[in-house]
Amino acid sequence: MGKITFYEDRAFQGRSYECTTDCPNLQPYFSRCNSIRVESGCWMIYERPNYQGHQYFLRRGEYPDYQQWMGLSDSIRSCCLIPP
């Protein structure tokens, strides 16, 4: 099982949303994503809903700024857990 936490502000500040399963639409939970903490598993995150747009592969670790995962913007709208 994986676990990823999205934060609206840099350095793990602001409103957060924790996810443990695939989520095709993160828009209801936060308006922007400036930092991420991957506590377990590997995740693919996407800039648009329904697994569309630019995608980024994240391993376990801390990403205090969206540029840390080579993001082009602070828009993350869907995510899925990559099976081991």
Results as ranks from 00 to 15, higher is better:
residue 1 M to D: 02
residue 1 M to S: 03
residue 1 M to Y: 06
residue 1 M to E: 05
residue 2 G to C: 11
residue 2 G to D: 11
residue 2 G to K: 10
residue 3 K to L: 09
residue 3 K to W: 07
residue 3 K to C: 12
residue 3 K to H: 04
residue 3 K to S: 11
residue 3 K to E: 05
residue 4 I to D: 00
residue 4 I to Q: 00
residue 4 I to N: 00
residue 4 I to E: 00
residue 5 T to C: 05
residue 5 T to D: 01
residue 5 T to S: 08
residue 5 T to V: 09
residue 5 T to K: 06
residue 5 T to R: 10
residue 5 T to E: 06
residue 5 T to G: 01
residue 5 T to I: 08
residue 6 F to S: 00
residue 6 F to D: 00
residue 6 F to H: 00
residue 6 F to E: 00
residue 7 Y to Q: 01
residue 7 Y to V: 01
residue 7 Y to G: 00
residue 7 Y to C: 01
residue 8 E to P: 01
residue 8 E to Y: 04
residue 8 E to K: 05
residue 9 D to L: 13
residue 9 D to C: 13
residue 9 D to E: 13
residue 9 D to P: 00
residue 9 D to M: 13
residue 9 D to S: 14
residue 9 D to W: 10
residue 10 R to W: 08
residue 10 R to F: 03
residue 10 R to M: 08
residue 10 R to T: 12
residue 11 A to G: 11
residue 11 A to D: 12
residue 11 A to V: 07
residue 11 A to E: 11
residue 11 A to F: 11
residue 11 A to P: 04
residue 12 F to E: 04
residue 12 F to G: 08
residue 12 F to D: 01
residue 12 F to M: 10
residue 13 Q to R: 11
residue 13 Q to W: 02
residue 13 Q to C: 13
residue 14 G to S: 03
residue 14 G to A: 02
residue 14 G to H: 03
residue 14 G to E: 03
residue 14 G to Q: 02
residue 15 R to L: 12
residue 15 R to H: 14
residue 15 R to K: 12
residue 16 S to F: 10
residue 16 S to M: 09
residue 16 S to Y: 14
residue 16 S to G: 06
residue 16 S to E: 13
residue 16 S to A: 12
residue 17 Y to A: 08
residue 17 Y to W: 07
residue 17 Y to R: 09
residue 18 E to I: 07
residue 18 E to W: 05
residue 18 E to L: 08
residue 18 E to M: 10
residue 18 E to G: 07
residue 18 E to K: 08
residue 19 C to E: 07
residue 19 C to H: 08
residue 19 C to V: 12
residue 19 C to I: 14
residue 19 C to Q: 05
residue 19 C to R: 09
residue 20 T to Q: 04
residue 20 T to D: 08
residue 20 T to Y: 05
residue 20 T to K: 06
residue 20 T to I: 02
residue 21 T to W: 04
residue 21 T to C: 06
residue 21 T to G: 11
residue 21 T to I: 04
residue 21 T to M: 08
residue 22 D to L: 04
residue 22 D to T: 02
residue 22 D to P: 03
residue 22 D to E: 13
residue 23 C to H: 13
residue 23 C to V: 14
residue 23 C to Q: 09
residue 23 C to T: 08
residue 24 P to V: 11
residue 24 P to R: 09
residue 24 P to G: 09
residue 24 P to K: 06
residue 25 N to K: 14
residue 25 N to C: 13
residue 25 N to A: 09
residue 25 N to T: 09
residue 26 L to T: 09
residue 26 L to V: 13
residue 26 L to Q: 15
residue 26 L to C: 08
residue 27 Q to F: 15
residue 27 Q to D: 07
residue 27 Q to C: 04
residue 27 Q to A: 14
residue 27 Q to V: 10
residue 28 P to R: 02
residue 30 F to G: 04
residue 30 F to W: 01
residue 31 S to Y: 03
residue 31 S to A: 07
residue 33 C to F: 03
residue 33 C to G: 01
residue 35 S to M: 00
residue 35 S to I: 00
residue 35 S to W: 00
residue 35 S to K: 00
residue 35 S to Q: 00
residue 36 I to F: 15
residue 38 V to I: 13
residue 38 V to C: 08
residue 39 E to G: 01
residue 40 S to F: 10
residue 48 R to N: 13
residue 48 R to A: 12
residue 48 R to S: 12
residue 49 P to W: 07
residue 49 P to T: 13
residue 49 P to I: 15
residue 49 P to D: 14
residue 49 P to C: 11
residue 49 P to L: 14
residue 50 N to D: 14
residue 50 N to V: 10
residue 50 N to C: 15
residue 50 N to K: 12
residue 50 N to W: 09
residue 51 Y to L: 13
residue 51 Y to H: 15
residue 51 Y to D: 04
residue 51 Y to R: 15
residue 51 Y to S: 15
residue 51 Y to V: 14
residue 51 Y to G: 09
residue 52 Q to H: 12
residue 52 Q to S: 11
residue 52 Q to W: 06
residue 52 Q to T: 07
residue 52 Q to K: 10
residue 53 G to R: 10
residue 53 G to D: 11
residue 53 G to S: 14
residue 53 G to I: 13
residue 53 G to N: 10
residue 53 G to Y: 10
residue 56 Y to C: 02
residue 58 L to F: 15
residue 58 L to S: 01
residue 61 G to D: 13
residue 62 E to W: 15
residue 62 E to V: 15
residue 62 E to P: 02
residue 63 Y to C: 05
residue 65 D to N: 15
residue 75 S to V: 09
residue 75 S to E: 05
residue 75 S to N: 11
residue 75 S to T: 11
residue 76 I to F: 03
residue 77 R to S: 14
residue 78 S to P: 03
residue 81 L to S: 09
residue 81 L to F: 11
residue 81 L to R: 09
residue 81 L to W: 09
residue 81 L to A: 12
residue 82 I to T: 02
residue 83 P to L: 15
residue 83 P to T: 03
residue 84 P to R: 12
